[in-house]
Design a binder for these strands. Structure first.
Length: 738
DNA sequence: CCTCAATCACTTTTT
DNA sequence: GTGATTGAGG
């Protein structure tokens, strides 16, 4: 049969996945077992056998990059053009559908998406407005609580069904309510609103639900272990009638529960749908045996899991390595030496350095620059969140959606001569006229301003009107040029002539140059977006779609360039990727597991999964390193080896320079040939912190209330448990470790 | 009234 | 080494 011929490149389990077309299908696919392949072949099979047409297929991936690759491979393998193919992330797909269905929703098709920074600014503004103590209510914390409510589909009116009633949570609810009012007034959604609105739309509007149920006859979800409740509900609404849903995931790779993902989705799939067929993929095609055995030995320490063992026929004598270095600089040097060594047999791009926190990348960068090794760094500040880029895009945002106050404000403040007080007056005028600020500005009546600000604001109004007008007929690319020209931002960054773009020479200031390059990149990506959009949608791109895609883009999604460079990224970003050579740095308690996670066992389990993900990215070599001393925010501390090290099966690990006992006697640092990179602060000299528990020979136990100075000479204010408050010199007390 | 320079605190992971 | 906030000068 022709259909079987299609699947000849798959192994039996994969073949079963691809050819099981009807009903709910749960694929438990370990790392490197070819799950992307399965998805592609299953899609190809569904279409080739006439089960469905490509426009009735929905494929949800975890990143935009994965979506792009999937499209590419569908085109290459099955000759499927990407027009009318619904492949994308939850946010991009359902963000688009919300535009279609805006008539049923409290916002328009031109809504803008607020990124995390916009969200935080808004929360901050509300906290100020409501006169709430900003010390006890940190914008970031409040933001993430609101986010959690939305991920669990809790609107403000359901807040008390799942939250304890306390004075504190009462304030949170107040902020949440106000926050939603603001978003609505500004015709804006945050990331979580996209999911929440979609879930409620499908739940509440039967006609809409039936329409999209019919549209998406076959649904596939990748990385199902990292979906949250809102995402579960959306998919459940779409799939519950036809039940043609295939989810692919690996509970051992669930690393996003902190963002609301619930492992329950994959663990309970068999009870959420009826007659589920479950297929396991355990044969790994990526790593050789020693790497898998090491990974298996680590992950077996987790208790809540489906349980599976990856295996392979691929054997090499090479074992993963564990190496201890003196400090983070030595670690970075060691890594750079490894990279140079690997470069003799494979490209730079086949090496990746993985770390737990973005901050760890700095020292690596420094050393790589020194050694002249080209690298590419992922994460950190997202391309579209960079100041110079947001500055340009805010003009486009207020053009597509004049209600977007955040952008209007940003643009106003960018205008020379317009500052905070003009802004306040505009806001005041808007309040007294009971209309949006946008309307006040666009009306052009500024008698409440002084003559200079009034003139400048009139200029701003004219610019806005010009942009509104131009947006009707200019392409996105040309529109960005218009912004650059009219706002003076182009001149500011040395981009004043379209034709000279490439001829411009390097600028003296490297920071300036990188901004210049970023703006060029923005222009490129705008025209690329237009091209791709035409191909995929058979229609002209619109500005709102462009801005949405820009906001939903992660650093990982930006196009690969042709240059051969080493990859630097967090372990989270490494998900779904693979490299010949993996280097994992900073295997220390406090970093991995991160100190914010060590108190709760299930958080430690997630950190363990993170390390598991990192190790299983490797095809050929794994090098794990740790430093004995590391510069932390408080100073240079002696580190503690990660608890995960002793969980590794030693049979599959080559250990170098690592002596666990060296850590037990901090006063006598291990003998070393390298001299320490910086002045080392001994345990006894550590900085004292307010709130620390201490012990004094005569006065007993107490807590530090105040610190003046550093180290053993610091003057401490201590409240002793049995009453007195005393001032004591640091060298007389010992810190009590938890 | 606006601008810029100095000082402050903070830094897990991200769609 | 980032960013936001604050204070003095223009």
């Amino acid at each position: 049969m022709v259909a079987d011929e299609l699947l000849k490149d798959l192994n039996p389990a994969q073949k079963q996945v691809a050819s099981t077309t009807e009903g709910p299908l749960l694929v438990l696919a370990g790392a490197g077992t070819g799950k992307t392949r399965c998805i592609i072949y299953r899609a190809g099979y569904l279409i080739a056998t006439g089960c469905t047409r490509k426009e009735n297929l929905l494929i949800v991936t975890f990143t935009n990059k994965a979506a792009r690759e999937l499209r590419q491979r569908l085109a290459d393998t099955f000759n499927l053009a990407s027009t009318n193919l619904w492949v994308g992330t939850f946010h991009s797909i359902f963000g688009k559908i919300l535009r279609f269905e805006a008539d049923h929703l409290p916002f328009t098709a031109n809504y803008v998406i607020y990124d995390e920074k916009d969200q935080k600014n808004l929360v901050k503004k509300i906290i100020k407005e409501l006169n709430i103590d900003a010390k006890r209510f940190k914008p970031q914390v409040v933001r993430s609580i609101i986010s959690r409510q939305k991920n669990n589909l809790l609107k403000p009116e359901q807040f008390w069904e799942f939250n304890e009633y306390t004075p504190w949570s009462k304030e949170i609810l107040k902020i949440y309510i106000r926050y939603q009012e603001y978003l609505q007034a500004q015709n804006a959604l945050d990331f979580d609103d996209i999911l929440m609105n979609m879930a409620y739309l499908l739940a509440d509007n039967e006609a809409v639900r039936l329409k999209w149920q019919k549209k998406f006859r076959y649904i596939m979800i990748d990385e199902y272990q990292d979906t949250n409740y809102a995402q579960f509900e959306i998919i459940h609404h779409l799939a519950k009638d036809h039940q043609n849903i295939c989810v692919v995931g690996d509970d051992d790779q669930a690393i996003y529960t902190w963002r609301g993902a619930t492992i329950k989705n994959i663990l309970n799939f068999e009870s959420d749908y009826q007659n589920v067929i479950k297929i396991r993929l355990e044969r790994n095609y990526r790593s050789h045996e020693n790497i898998l055995k090491l990974a298996n030995s680590l992950i077996s320490h987790n208790t809540s899991r489906h349980g599976k063992e990856l295996y392979t026929d691929f054997k090499l004598p090479e074992k993963p390595h564990l190496t201890a270095l003196d400090n983070e600089e030595g670690e970075a040097l060691f890594v750079s030496e490894l990279i140079t060594e690997f470069y003799t047999t494979s490209k730079y791009a086949e090496s990746a350095v993985l770390y737990r926190t973005n901050a760890q990348s700095r020292i690596l960068e420094k050393i790589l620059v020194q050694k002249n090794i080209p690298y590419r760094i992922f994460g950190g500040v997202n391309f579209y969140q960079r100041k110079e880029i947001k500055d340009i895009l805010c003009y486009l945002r207020m053009t597509v959606n004049p209600e977007d106050l955040e952008s209007v404000q940003r643009a106003l403040l960018l205008s020379p001569g317009i500052g905070k007080s003009t802004l306040d007056k505009l806001a005041l005028a808007a309040a007294s006229q009971q209309c949006p600020i946008a309307q006040v500005i666009l009306t052009g009546e500024f008698s409440f301003l002084g003559s200079r600000p009034a003139k400048l604001t009139t200029g701003f109004r004219q610019l806005w009107l010009d942009l509104l007008d131009a947006s009707q007929n200019l392409s996105i690319y040309d529109l960005i040029w218009l912004v650059l020209e009219k706002t003076g931002l182009g001149a500011l960054y040395g981009i004043d002539n379209k034709k000279d773009l490439k001829k411009k020479k390097a600028f003296a200031d490297p920071e300036f140059q990188s901004k210049y390059e970023n703006i060029c990149e923005l222009l490129n990506s705008a025209s690329e977006f237009s091209q791709e959009y035409k191909q995929e949608n058979d229609s002209e791109p619109d500005l709102a779609e462009y801005l949405a895609s820009a906001t939903l883009q992660t650093d990982l999604d930006t196009n690969d360039d042709a240059q051969d460079r080493v990859n630097l990224m967090t372990m989270h970003n490494a998900k779904g990727l693979e490299f010949d050579h993996i280097m994992i740095v900073g295997l220390e308690d406090g970093l991995l597991p991160h100190y914010r996670s060590i108190e709760e066992e299930d958080k430690v389990e997630e950190e363990r999964r993170l390390l598991y993900v990192a190790i299983t990215r490797a095809r050929q070599t794994v090098h794990i390193t740790l430093a004995r001393w590391r510069r932390m925010s408080t100073g240079i501390d002696m580190t503690k080896p990660s608890r995960f090290i002793k969980e590794f099966d030693p049979e599959y690990l080559d250990v170098e320079h690592y002596d666990p006992h060296a850590y037990l006697t901090p006063s006598r640092p291990a003998r070393t040939n390298h001299k320490p990179a910086a002045r080392v602060v001994l345990e006894s000299e550590k900085h004292f912190k307010i709130g620390q528990k201490i012990k004094h020979v005569n006065f007993g136990l107490g807590m530090i209330l105040g610190v003046d100075g550093q180290g053993r000479d610091a003057l401490l204010v201590i409240k002793f448990d049995d009453g007195p408050v005393k001032k004591i010199i640091g060298s007389y007390v010992d810190v009590i470790k938890k």
